[in-house]
Design a protein around this nucleic acid. Structure first.
Length: 428
DNA sequence: TGAAATGTTGGGGCG
DNA sequence: ACGCCCCAACATTTC
């Protein structure tokens, strides 16, 4: 079966490819796994109706999620806003009807006449497509630290199950950034290289077979449900990446430089793009220091450097750097969301904005705004030997390492005061 | 999946 | 033996 590489508008291309194959080969039909973000649902719906109009059969399947977002509902038929009841219902549903794991059908070779795509301008030749990517960041970091593809995804999963047997407790150690106790499967899930339905089935079987490891196995499946929950929320709130879910936060004085959303026009730093004043300048510097891992806060810098160097970051540390950016530095969560989108290999359309709104306190069922992480305490609790921090910030005890840009206690107080203001506004 | 402030309790040192 | 103080340890409240 030939692989066709194409560049251009996917809706036009898929329709055109299907028509050409249908005419030349008598194509039986077109099938795909569903996408759940509104722009993609619309594109796929458009393809579907067009193909049907041409008499080409179309069938879409679930596959990217454990549950179809619209099937998990409260007793009164509305979507969930809170994770705990959501996960309860989703889990019952999954227990009653486990998600189907589709075997991949064996493909038979076909003969494709040379001239089928002769005049199709969107078709790329493989060698041009596979040429060295620019900038070299992609080759330096991604090829060293990521192994994309289905075989590695399965290998990683089986190693993970083994680790649950070895007595290393997932529930206790997945919060310790120096330990490789997490599954590491998120990039593979992100790119559809392993199916959550398969993970669910195999992990549930594993839990039955190994009662001693069952609690850890279910703690892992709970993380998969967070992923489904983020997509459940995005399905009902497609604008989640741009807008505060809790609109009171539109009044919050975030430092916010661009991508003006109407609700944020009152931001104290909304004018920063034009002619940055001293205040705005300082916030831009702080944002840049956060991105580079030069804030002077060891755990924050370690996380941000890990992210830049490897394309990933330990989950516990994500919460700490997110809390630091949005609360202590007072910078709009969308700056964090955009940076993670650009640098994090597992960032997807749902989890990334969902978790940023969670940490910033402006999402449904978010961490309350006053829940501010103290990165100095977090490092004592979760990296007491300094293994993680020393790995990424080896110079932290030398004069080369900068002083913190803002004081931990002072910035906490400032954040709480600002939060108190919008609470009062919302009441009044 | 917080942290800090505030309140409570109980043991030990000491006059 | 007793009351007093101190303070660690734990619990509760507040942000």
């Amino acid at each position: 079966m030939p692989l066709i590489l194409a560049a251009g508008d996917p809706v036009e291309i898929v329709i055109d490819v299907a028509r050409r194959l249908s005419e030349s080969l008598g194509l039986a039909g077109v099938t795909w796994h569903r996408r759940y973000h509104k722009p993609f649902r619309e594109a796929d719906a458009c393809i579907k109706t067009a193909l049907q109009r041409y008499g080409i059969g179309v069938k879409s399947h679930p596959g990217y999620l454990l549950t179809e977002p619209w099937t998990v509902q409260t007793g009164s038929g509305t979507p969930f806003k809170v994770f705990t009841p959501y996960s309860k219902t989703a889990q019952e549903q999954l227990h009653l009807s486990p998600p189907e794991v589709f075997p991949v059908p064996k493909l038979r070779g076909i003969y494709l006449p040379d001239d089928v795509f002769a005049d199709a301008e969107y078709v790329l030749d493989v060698e041009a497509f596979m040429g060295a990517p620019e900038p070299s960041w992609a080759t330096d970091t991604l090829t060293k630290h990521c192994t994309p593809g289905e075989p590695h995804a399965h290998e990683r999963f089986s190693c993970f199950l083994d680790s649950l047997l070895s007595g290393q407790s997932y529930k206790e150690l997945n919060d310790v950034p120096s330990r490789a106790a997490t599954s590491g499967l998120s990039p593979h899930l992100r790119f559809g290289e392993i199916s959550p339905a398969y993970l669910w089935r195999e992990t549930a079987r594993f839990a039955d077979a190994h009662p001693a490891a069952a609690a850890d196995a279910w703690a892992f499946l709970r993380q998969l449900l967070w992923r489904d929950f983020a997509w459940h929320r995005l399905y009902y709130l497609p604008e989640m990446a741009e807008k505060n879910v809790r609109s009171q936060f539109n009044e919050f004085p975030w430092a916010w430089s661009s991508k003006a959303d109407p609700g944020a026009s009152k931001s104290a730093f909304a004018h920063m793009d034009m002619e940055p004043d001293e205040d705005a300048r300082q916030h831009l510097d702080e944002l840049a220091a956060w991105q580079k891992g030069e804030t002077g806060i060891p755990l924050v810098d370690a996380g941000m450097r890990e992210l830049w160097a490897t394309g990933t970051m330990h989950n516990r540390v994500r919460m700490v750097v997110g809390s630091w950016l949005t609360k202590n530095l007072g910078i709009h969560w969308r700056h964090g969301e955009e940076w993670f989108w650009d640098t994090l290999v597992d960032a997807d359309y749902a989890s990334n904005p969902f978790n940023w709104q969670w940490v910033a306190g402006c999402g449904d069922d978010a961490a309350p705004y006053f829940r501010i992480f103290n990165p100095l305490l977090q490092v004592e609790k979760f990296d007491p030997d300094g293994l993680y921090v020393n790995r990424w910030v080896p110079e932290r005890h030398t004069p080369l390492y900068p002083e913190p840009m803002v004081d931990v206690k002072e910035s906490r107080k400032t954040a709480l005061a600002a939060y108190n203001d919008i609470r009062n506004v919302a009441k009044g």
